[in-house]
Design a protein around this nucleic acid. Structure first.
Length: 435
DNA sequence: TTAGGGTTAG
């Protein structure tokens, strides 16, 4: 009865109108749980403080709520106040997870080592914590030490490799996972592995995973569909991406975003725009990533008019404030079209300071169009950033060189050597053998 | 009480 609320007003009403001793402890706990889940920690705390008696479930719900929202000091003080015998494994796990997610790995580890009784979740939290912080070797040691692993353990470790540019290790671990008898990948695992295939442009492996999904009758949810579409798009197979999209029943915003971005990165601007108007017809609400995709499409297709329009409706109609990446796209688009002053004017309206990428887009345009005046104006802002991004220094130097301003070109170049900034190595990819 | 993705620029 008290398990969920449409809004916290009903929880508040119930709490205010019910005499304290009418409810039993289970109902009180459910009430707290509902408030914590809906994000109203203050109300949960008020209820917790006024409860006639509390048990481990009440304490754990509060501690977990604070730990999840990053209020670790409050969580810790409640944990300390709690009778040690009342602390259960979930109480400990909530604290460990809170510390690990906030990057306090040594604190998490200390609690993990101190806890009287661990379960598989405790191990998974630590594996995930290390993996997310890029400490993959520590994560892997813990993972290998686990006597029993579940799908969470495998997914955490694979995602860790995926997020830290160790995609091949992720794929190898996925192969090991498939060889295990009692474990099957789920949607989360598959999304991670598909993302690896996309980044590595490993089309054969991506196709194999697609057929695995079909063979095993996995339901292609909105998110899994998005991962498949994204994988095909990153491998340059727009037709396959579209086919996946068309076959899906329950498309969500991520599915649409994957399709639009897929069209955009493959230079199919009209496909992206068409998909966006379909979304509008279906009254599917776009988000900031949808607009990034559409703007990217305009940028690739040189569609200035459309780009301007989408950039405008984004905030005016949909109330989505442009982020740095949206600015990057529109400035790149205008800059390439030679509309440098308009691009510079947008830079000036930005509420956040333009980053190196945004300035880089404008420098790039200055170089294409032989525009030195704007480059001069932006140069100070750029130098103030003390950026170690070699590309911008080189662009700037090339702008001056093209204009015959050799002294400026040399001084810009010398910044590179002075600050020991090195240009990153060019990379290309090679397809891996099949699974 | 634990796990996931979407991105371009010279």
């Amino acid at each position: 009865m008290y398990s969920s609320f449409d809004d916290n007003i009903s929880a508040r009403k119930l709490f205010d109108t019910t005499p304290v001793n009418v409810l039993d402890i289970v109902s009180w706990n459910t009430l707290i749980d509902g408030c914590v889940k809906s994000g109203d920690l203050d109300l949960a705390r008020e209820i917790f403080d006024r409860m006639p008696e509390r048990n481990d479930v009440s304490w754990t719900a509060m501690i977990s709520g604070y730990a999840k929202s990053g209020e670790l000091d409050v969580a810790q003080s409640l944990f300390d106040k709690m009778m040690p015998v009342c602390r259960n494994v979930m109480t400990w796990n909530s604290m460990i997870s809170g510390f690990a997610k906030s990057g306090f790995l040594s604190l998490a580890r200390k609690m993990f080592d101190d806890m009287p009784c661990k379960n598989i979740v405790s191990w998974n939290i630590m594996v995930s914590g290390y993996a997310q912080c890029g400490e993959l070797e520590v994560a892997r040691c813990l993972f290998d030490d686990m006597e029993v692993k579940d799908v969470f353990s495998w997914s955490c470790m694979i995602a860790g490799y995926a997020q830290n540019n160790r995609g091949e290790d992720g794929l190898n671990l996925f192969r090991e996972m498939l060889a295990e008898d009692c474990i099957r990948p789920n949607e989360v695992t598959l999304v991670s592995v598909l993302s690896v295939c996309g980044h590595l442009v490993a089309l054969d492996q991506g196709k194999w995973i697609h057929s695995y999904i079909d063979r095993n009758g996995c339901k292609v949810s909105g998110n899994l569909g998005a991962a498949l579409i994204d994988m095909y798009a990153k491998c340059g197979c727009v037709e396959n991406a579209v086919e996946v999209f068309q076959k899906m029943n329950d498309k969500n915003i991520s599915t649409w975003n994957a399709l639009i971005t897929g069209f955009a990165v493959n230079g199919v601007a009209d496909g992206a725009i068409e998909a966006f108007s379909q979304m509008q017809k279906l009254e599917m609400k776009p988000n900031s990533i949808t607009f990034l995709g559409v703007l990217m499409a305009c940028c690739h297709g040189g569609l200035v008019e459309e780009g301007r329009r989408y950039f405008e409706i984004m905030s005016k109609t949909y109330e989505i404030q442009p982020e740095m990446k949206h600015y990057g796209c529109i400035i790149d688009l205008l800059g390439r079209a030679g509309l440098l002053e308009e691009a510079e004017a947008i830079v000036k309206t930005m509420t956040v300071k333009p980053d190196v990428m945004v300035l880089g887009a404008l420098f790039g345009a200055c170089r294409i169009h032989g525009e030195t005046l704007i480059a001069d104006r932006l140069r100070k802002d750029f130098l103030r950033m003390k950026s170690r991004e070699a590309g911008c220094h080189i662009l700037l130097s090339n702008i001056y060189a093209a204009a015959g301003r050799w002294a400026d070109a040399c001084s810009t170049r010398s910044m590179l050597t002075m600050h020991e900034i090195k240009k990153g190595v060019g990379l290309s990819s090679v397809e891996l053998p099949k699974i």
